[in-house]
C-alpha cells in the first residue's frame, strides 16, 4: 500500500510539486481501520455522505464497493452512522505486514 519515497527520491527543500490533496496519502495517519462487510451492507450510502474525505468507494449505480485506504484517516464516522453495523473499526496493528 505504502508509496513512500526515500530521501534521494524526494523533491528538495520541502517542496511539493503543484498538486492537489488527491496525491497525499492521508491513510498514513490511520490508527483504526474501517472494515466493510458487504454481506451486511444495504447501500444506504450514509457512510458515503458522512465521510469527511473521499474514502468510501461507490459506483455509478449507487452501490458501495469498498473503502479507499489511501485516504481514510480512520475517524470512524462511517462505522458510527452505519445502521446495519456493516463497518467495523479494527486496530491498524492487526494489519501490519510482517
Amino acid at each position: 500500500m505504502s508509496s513512500l519515497k526515500g530521501w534521494k527520491d524526494l523533491p528538495p527543500a520541502t517542496t511539493v510539486p503543484a498538486s492537489t490533496s488527491e496525491a497525499v496519502e492521508t491513510g498514513q495517519w490511520r490508527s483504526m481501520r474501517p472494515v466493510w462487510d458487504e454481506e451486511k451492507c444495504i447501500h444506504c450510502l450514509q457512510c458515503w455522505i458522512q465521510c469527511p474525505d473521499k474514502s468510501i468507494k461507490a459506483n455509478a449505480d449507487g452501490k458501495v464497493t469498498g473503502i479507499e485506504y489511501f485516504y481514510c484517516k480512520g475517524c470512524g464516522i462511517c462505522a458510527a452512522v452505519c445502521p446495519k453495523n456493516a463497518i467495523e473499526m479494527r486496530p491498524e496493528a492487526e494489519f501490519i505486514e510482517q
Binding site: 513512500l4 530521501w7 523533491p11 528538495p12 520541502t14 517542496t15 503543484a18 498514513q28 495517519w29
Partner: peptide, 20 residues
Amino acid sequence: NPVAYGSLALTDYFFEIKRQ
C-alpha cells in the same frame, strides 16, 4: 512550475527531509 514550500510532513517524510 508551481511548488509548495513547507507542507505538512509528519512521521512519513520529516526524517527524510532532515537527511537531505
